[in-house]
């Protein structure tokens, strides 16, 4: 319930400040350009790739997620509202959950906007909608997970730039872990790294039209653990004054 109140403030903040629109426009411009490029390449040679836009977003979120979350706690710290939040009869986890849901809802809106590409494909060909849906569900969960990673760093530091930078580095590592096999000759080590990677639960399953329960569990687990850690960080700040 209190999460819902925090969520509403958070989503209102996204929708009333220009920042979110700038990010949204940038994402749409990027996906738009790549969508047209793919359309030109596949013209008369191959069927439409239903997972194209989710695939682009899977990389773009490495950079966009920290931008979306960097101000989340840093701004509250700077304005002092964090002190009010933490003295309101609300648990840290509720605050964290509400803020996450706000950012995730914003991301969901962005995803819905990219649905235009599917509509365009529908009007010119017959794309595999089931495949597309799978990729979209995948990137939706994936995006949620990247947002929570960004949130951890936003809670860790009051400096927005540092928060964004650390978030990007962390997500980049999680993204690249997929390629661990190129780095480690021991396949078991490589598998562990790939299991920890974001790509490893998206590119070969959701993005290719296969929904696997363990991938859902992975992203849900990342979201749960990261939100929990964020709440712990907030709580630890009480102890350090």
């Amino acid at each position: 319930m209190t999460s819902w109140i925090v969520f509403r403030r958070e989503i209102a903040q996204f929708l009333t400040t220009p920042f979110a629109y700038v990010i949204g426009a940038a994402v749409l411009l990027l996906t738009g350009i790549l969508f047209n490029r793919d359309l030109n390449i596949s013209f008369s040679t191959k069927p439409a790739d239903p997972a194209l836009v989710p695939g682009i977003l899977s990389f773009a979120m490495v950079f966009f997620a920290p931008l979306l979350t960097m101000r989340m706690f840093a701004e509250e710290q700077r304005e002092g509202t964090m002190e009010l939040l933490l003295t309101a009869p609300v648990r840290e986890l509720s605050i964290v959950l509400g803020k996450f849901l706000g950012a995730w809802a914003y991301f969901t809106l962005l995803l819905l906007l990219t649905g235009v590409y599917q509509v365009i494909l529908l009007s010119i060909t017959a794309p595999d909608l089931g495949h597309a849906l799978s990729a979209y569900i995948g990137i939706w969960l994936y995006g949620g997970a990247t947002l929570t990673v960004g949130m951890v760093f936003s809670a860790l530091t009051e400096n927005q730039i540092v928060a964004a930078f650390l978030g990007m580095v962390a997500l980049m590592l999680l993204w690249l872990a997929d390629q661990a096999g190129q780095l480690f000759s021991n396949i078991d080590v490589a598998i562990i790294f790939r299991t920890m990677s974001l790509q490893g639960h998206f590119s070969t399953s959701f993005a290719s039209g296969l929904m696997r329960a363990e991938d859902v569990a992975f992203f849900a687990g990342i979201i749960a653990v990261m939100l929990f850690i964020t709440a712990q960080i907030l709580e630890s700040q009480r102890w350090h004054g």
Partner: peptide, 25 residues
């Protein structure tokens, strides 16, 4: 509680701000 430096959300209106804290409490 009123902290020493009044904590505000600059991008909210007065009403939205007070309403938010009313709901949260």
């Amino acid at each position: 509680y009123l902290p020493e430096r009044v904590p505000v959300y600059p991008d909210m209106t007065v009403r939205e701000y007070v309403f938010f804290w009313a709901r949260l409490r």
